[in-house]
């Protein structure tokens, strides 16, 4: 297991945001983390990446216990992330956005920088400040920047947010490309179910901070608990009727 999370619980004051969360991620796959709004997906990301310290529970990454370690330390171990609402270094150029997070500078780093810019089709923007980029390019840059720290595990937090259907398709291709080009594992938070179903090998479903289902995408789709979480009680029967039609 590349990452295993055991009994992760987190309180914000009296609010239990994540409750006894368990998840295992195998190396080399794309795993999805889905759930309705407010289910605790982003909080889980924040706990894994060390931005919050969990109230209890354990996070083991590549055999190391990284629970409660500072964020930069966890990033150094090989976990990178993107953010739901873009967090680029606005007044730094595209090139600088990538260079600044590389942990080594030099020839190899420069070559890697060039490669990332090419792979993510950012050549023509390379010298522009990232805040001057079109939205789609900013989204691509966030992923490129995360890959610049050479992570083993990449956490993508709603990379398709605010994209139109054709952009979502492009993003799916991009994520497939990342899996091929880099020696990497991806954990994906996403609401675009079409994309999730197409990309993910395994899904974890979260509701009110608790895991309500884990499994292959097809099984999750037919899980009555999951359908209920999204559509409410009786949702399963509505879905059943629709599929009969």
């Amino acid at each position: 297991m590349l990452l295993s999370v055991k009994g992760l619980t987190h309180y914000f004051g009296g609010l239990r945001a994540v409750n006894d969360f368990n998840m295992e991620i195998e190396k080399g796959i794309i795993q999805g983390l889905i759930g309705p709004n407010g289910a605790g997906k982003t909080t889980t990301f924040n706990l894994i990446t060390g931005m919050h310290v969990p109230t209890s529970g354990e996070i083991i990454f590549s055999g190391d216990n990284i629970t409660g370690k500072p964020a930069y330390h966890i990033a150094g171990k090989g976990i990178a992330r993107t953010f739901q609402n873009l967090k680029l270094f606005s007044r730094l150029t595209v090139r600088e956005n990538i260079r600044v997070v590389q942990n080594k500078q030099g020839k190899d780093a420069a070559a890697e920088e060039e490669r990332l810019i090419k792979l993510f089709e950012l050549e023509k923007y390379a010298e522009y400040r990232s805040c001057d980029l079109p939205y789609g390019a900013q989204r691509r840059l966030e992923i490129a920047r995360a890959l610049a720290i050479k992570p083993k595990l990449l956490l993508l937090d709603e990379p398709a947010a605010g994209m139109n259907p054709s952009e979502v398709d492009n993003l799916s291709e991009l994520i497939n490309m990342i899996i091929k080009e880099f020696d990497i594992t991806i954990l994906l938070i996403e609401h675009q179910m079409r994309m999730v179903m197409k990309l993910c090998h395994k899904l974890t479903v979260l509701n009110f901070g608790e895991v309500i289902a884990t499994g292959a995408p097809r099984d999750i789709l037919n899980n009555s608990g999951v359908v209920e979480a999204y559509l409410g009680k009786g949702g399963a029967s509505i879905r059943g009727k629709r599929s009969e039609r």
């Binding site: 500072p70 964020a71 992330r81 953010f83 967090k87 680029l88 730094l92 997070v101």
Partner: peptide, 11 residues
């Protein structure tokens, strides 16, 4: 520009 992102990306 972005302190949170700097931390999350290893600085």
């Amino acid at each position: 520009e972005e302190e949170t992102a700097s931390q999350a990306l290893g600085l």
